[in-house]
Design a binder for these strands. Structure first.
Length: 938
RNA sequence: GCCCCCGUAGCCCAACAGGCAGAGGCAGCCCCCUUAAAAGGGGUCGAGUGCCGGUUCGAAUCCGGUCGGGGGCACCA
């Protein structure tokens, strides 16, 4: 059979994939030519008439991957587009666009392999990405596309970096201020220098060193996460729970390296507290709270010989139960307090078999340093050694032994704990292994037969605390500690400062140079951007992933002509050395919503008028930010925390009008897919697998079904390109949106797409003659039932769109269309046809535009109209009540909607079947739920 | 180990605020169109809501327990 014959049998104006494709491309061209989705700004190059009612909808910044998109990627993009279109049709000024987070490892790695410049790779990938998303008919303002690797963009990333560099956190004011204010305080003597000398007596390098301790971005020599396998350092957020790099899954080692750090910890409280004002999923808020990890407690000093060991505890109320201390093996005081010899009666379990405490400590440290983080995690057996020293419990004078053990971490709190085995299971485990005493300081609940008791109860064995509950006891003991100078109440965070340098090529260069003394000097604003130099070799030096004893060697350090630079920074031309690190991938995405607002402003990252209009607080107490931000949950503590931090700094400095970047966040689900393996366990092409006889077959071979992410390695990728070619973009959009609620993950099923196609075909057929292409709507006045169906659909669809319930919106349209099919075989009444088309437009914009034009619409449907429901048709005149007898439906009765409860009751009891059941008995109870049902209890 | 979310027809999913378990789609079945077919048309079948118990006149919905799936954190004192 030839193609021609097949085509001949299909009516020439049927809504097929081919017709859909033609319509879609025509409208995409129209939109582009007419700038249909351009949203005007209050001021600047994009200025225009702006309605007060605006909406800023944003997708999470995509990285333009070389692999292109699969059907899972556009789920969120289509979701934002439908939302944007719905609101645009209802008269709001809608900002929706998409740019690219273009710096990053894949382009660089590809460059390393092929020698092709990452810029070229990135540009090619962006072109392909744009081709793919344009085919979907997303209503983006094309003028607002941005690319983070574009110097005109990263100029402002560098500018913001400098803003942060030139700021410090004023604890008293609770906000960032210019570092010049701090200098003024030092100069005026209002603030003492660390060593007490007057500010003017410090030389330049010394002054800068002091300021470095306050700057919101600063150079640090602290331990960082060094990944030899990647040749770069990474942030805490990029290290997985088992101590490996999120990217590449390489071992991560702690190394002291001089690196840029962002003082995000200064904002820990605000980052937690301000979550309350955000319309975000609770899950994401919980993850951020958890990551910041604020805990209230106390620091308590224990005397150990001539030294003082300070511990952090969240349970100061249990101080009377502290029966020993534990220091992290790396704790600075260990050597000072370790005694020369063991006490004569030392427990053999405490010595680790060593002859002296010093030897035991050295051996234990060696063993601990050889354990990877993974080992430490997998093996939770408590180990440790005694230091030979005893500490004095300040509250009761008790003499308690001091241990080192690796279950205490140097990086948290003070690196030392007071151990209370009675109330802490870890301490209990250690005490059990080492034969240490247990003193309960909280009365366990009756019947408690566990080990450590962590529940609520009155204090016992605790002197003046006895009888108090935990909260009261904490207050009392903290007051006592402060009064007697043994400690103080404090707040501890898990959050650490953000490591901000990477030893990579494809990222933003730091706008910083170093003078002859090695002091960092900011590049003046007018010299921005500091552009990436051309280099021969894009790769950082990578090493054996297991070799911790290696040094980073960034690619930029080899661009010697670029690194050495002569500049006049106010005191004559001098030679400086550039910083050879680049910023992490997150930098560009920390502020991109601001650039979407004003993509071309050459003088500023964003004009204040435009920022205030699109992102400013809308009412007192509103934090401001993007009105709807859709993306995956994987950025919960990375991008979303960093972006909030930058926003707050900019807010404090008066650069933006609100303290939060994203007012409302929504996590879309993921589309996953089935994959199939043959008997050898090798993946076979999923598209070639058929289901039959209760099994799955690839050809004749039976294969096993698996479920997972879509990807090349599982051979189960389905692309939007194939879907658009086979069904058209509108069908694909409709299918993705009707698979389920936006936030639910679900399996892809190509075979189901046909349902969406059939619906559009039927709707088309109701309006257009498939043979002639002529409109076949009628001017007949629709009957009452039809008007009710129409207005019920309108009311429901409004709510569904506004609440991102596109699956039910689609179902309501299908329902209405099915009604039209059944009731009007000769063509749809115009008023219903128009309503259907308008309501369909957010989901399927191309076919809606086409039908709207056929219906006589002179302009694009993008800006409306959208139908409004007429209340008259929403209220029923009569209601059918199901009548339950003892909870089971036994009959039905129709009564006027206005009927009183008594009338409904009477009608129900009079119903034939019900009356038969009730008989002569008197019902014990009759419940009438207005508009719902009647229940008769016998 | 701790915390969070989810279990409804063969499959994907609906069900306002406790009130008739079904809106929609896929698959299945029947019929129509067709020489034949379907990415055509019309119709139809199908679960008592993972399981146990409680509250209630009434529970998919609320409460307790349990099983299964997914996710986050994890020696953070």
């Amino acid at each position: 059979m030839s193609d021609t014959e097949q085509q001949e049998s299909v009516p020439s104006h049927r809504y097929t994939a081919a017709l859909a494709g033609a319509i879609e491309q025509r409208w995409q061209r129209y939109w582009e030519e007419h700038g249909t989705y351009q949203a005007p700004n209050p001021v600047g190059p994009l200025a225009g008439d702006v309605p007060a009612d605006k909406l800023f909808v944003q997708d999470m910044f995509p990285y333009p991957s070389g692999a292109g998109l699969h059907v899972g990627h556009p789920l969120g993009f289509i979701g934002t587009d439908v939302f944007a279109r719905y609101h645009r049709m209802n008269g709001r000024n809608v900002l929706h666009t998409m740019g690219f987070d273009a710096f990053g490892l894949p382009a660089e790695q590809y460059a390393v392999q092929t020698g092709q410049h990452p810029r070229k790779t990135t540009e090619d990938n962006i072109a392909n990405y744009l081709r793919q998303i344009r085919r979907l008919g997303l209503g983006h303002d094309e003028r607002r596309r941005i690319t983070t690797s574009d110097p005109s963009y990263y100029r402002w990333t560098q500018w913001i970096f400098l803003k942060i560099f030139h700021s410090y956190y004023d604890e008293a004011a609770g906000k960032a201020r210019p570092i010049s204010d701090l200098v003024a305080q030092f100069e005026a003597g209002e603030r003492a220098t660390p060593d007490g000398r007057p500010w003017a007596e410090l030389n330049h390098a010394e002054q800068q060193a002091v300021l470095n301790e306050h700057r919101l971005v600063y150079l640090s020599d602290a331990p960082v996460n060094w990944v030899p396998g990647l040749g770069t350092v990474v942030s805490n957020e990029e290290v997985t729970a088992d101590g490996r790099s999120e990217r590449g899954n390489f071992p991560v080692f702690r190394r002291n390296l001089r690196q840029w750090m962002m003082r995000i910890t200064a904002y820990a409280d605000r980052l937690i507290d301000d979550l309350d004002g955000l319309d975000w999923p609770d899950k994401v808020k919980a993850m951020q709270r958890n990551w910041i990890g604020r805990s209230h407690g106390a620091r308590v000093r224990f005397a150990v010989g001539d030294e003082q060991v300070e511990v952090f505890t969240t349970r100061p109320d249990t101080l009377f139960g502290a029966t020993y201390l534990v220091l992290a093996p790396e704790h600075a005081l260990v050597d000072a307090i370790a005694t020369a010899a063991w006490p004569s009666d030392v427990d053999s379990r405490w010595t680790g078999g060593a002859a002296t405490p010093a030897e035991a400590v050295a051996a234990y440290r060696r063993a601990a340093s050889m354990k990877s983080d993974l080992d430490r995690q997998e093996n939770k057996e408590k180990t440790g050694v005694f230091t030979g020293a005893y500490a004095t419990n300040p509250v009761n004078g008790a003499r308690v032994p001091v241990f080192i053990a690796d279950y205490v971490l140097m990086g948290y709190g003070t690196g030392a704990i007071m151990a209370v085995p009675g109330q802490d299971q870890r301490d209990w485990d250690f005490a059990a292994a080492f034969g240490l005493p247990v003193v309960r300081t909280v009365e366990p609940t009756p019947g408690f037969d566990g080990e450590a008791f962590t529940g609520e109860g009155p204090a016992v064995n605790s002197g003046f605390l006895d009888g108090l509950d935990i909260g009261e006891a904490k207050k009392a003991i903290i007051a006592w500690l402060e009064e007697h100078g043994h400690g103080r109440g404090t707040i501890q965070y898990k959050l650490r400062d953000w490591l901000f340098s990477r030893q990579r090529y494809w990222g933003e260069p730091f706008p910083v140079v170093y003078d002859a003394e090695g002091t960092a000097v900011a590049i003046p604003e007018h010299l921005l951007p500091v552009e990436l130099p051309e280099v021969d070799d894009y790769s950082p030096k990578t090493f054996d992933p297991e070799d911790a004893d290696t040094e980073p060697s960034p690619p930029l350090s080899r661009a010697t002509e670029w690194v050495e630079v002569e500049l006049d920074l106010g005191d004559g031309p001098k030679t400086y050395r550039r910083d050879t690190n680049t910023m992490p991938n997150w930098a560009g995405s920390c502020w991109y919503q601001l650039r979407y607002v004003d993509p071309d402003d050459p003088d500023r990252f964003c004009a204040p008028e435009n920022e205030r209009y699109w992102l400013g607080p809308q009412s007192p107490g509103d934090p401001g930010g993007v009105d709807l931000y859709i993306g995956g949950v994987e950025h919960a503590v990375l991008h979303l925390l960093y972006a909030r931090f930058w926003q707050k700094v900019l807010f404090d400095l008066g650069e933006v009008s609100g303290p939060e970047p994203y007012r409302r966040l929504f996590n879309q689900g993921f589309i996953q897919a089935y994959a199939y393996t043959d008997s050898r366990g090798v993946y076979v092409n999923a598209s070639e697998v058929v289901e039959r006889d209760g099994g799955f077959f690839h050809g004749d071979e039976k294969v096993r079904q698996e479920y997972g992410k879509m990807g090349k390695s599982l051979r189960n990728v389905v692309t939007p390109d194939e879907m658009c070619a086979t069904y058209g973009a509108d069908t694909f959009r409709l299918y993705e949106m009707s698979m389920g609620p936006m936030d639910v993950s679900r399996p892809w099923a190509t075979k189901d797409v046909i349902g969406a196609q059939r619906f559009l075909q039927r709707l088309w057929r109701n309006l257009v003659d498939e043979e002639t292409g002529e409109l076949r709507v009628t001017d007949a006045e629709p009957d009452e039932t039809t008007l009710r169906a129409l207005h019920k659909a309108i009311a429901g669809v409004h709510e569904d769109y506004a609440n991102l319930r596109y699956n039910t919106a689609g179902a309501k349209l299908i329902e209405l269309n099915n009604h039209v099919t059944k009731t009007f075989p000769d063509g749809a009444p115009r008023v219903v046809a128009e309503g259907l088309v308008q309501m369909l437009a957010p989901l399927c914009p191309h076919v809606a535009e086409e039908l709207w034009a056929k219906l006589g619409g002179a302009t694009s449907l993008a800006h409306g109209p959208f139908p409004a429901a007429d209340e008259r048709y929403l209220v029923e005149d009569s209601v059918e009540y199901p009548i339950q007898v003892n909870g089971k439906v036994r009959g039905r009765v129709s009564v006027p909607a206005a009927a009183s409860q008594d009338e409904v009751k009477a009608a129900a009891l009079a119903e034939e079947k019900v009356a038969a059941l009730v008989g002569d008995s008197t019902p014990r109870k009759v419940i009438v739920v207005p508009g719902r049902l009647v229940n008769i209890v016998l």
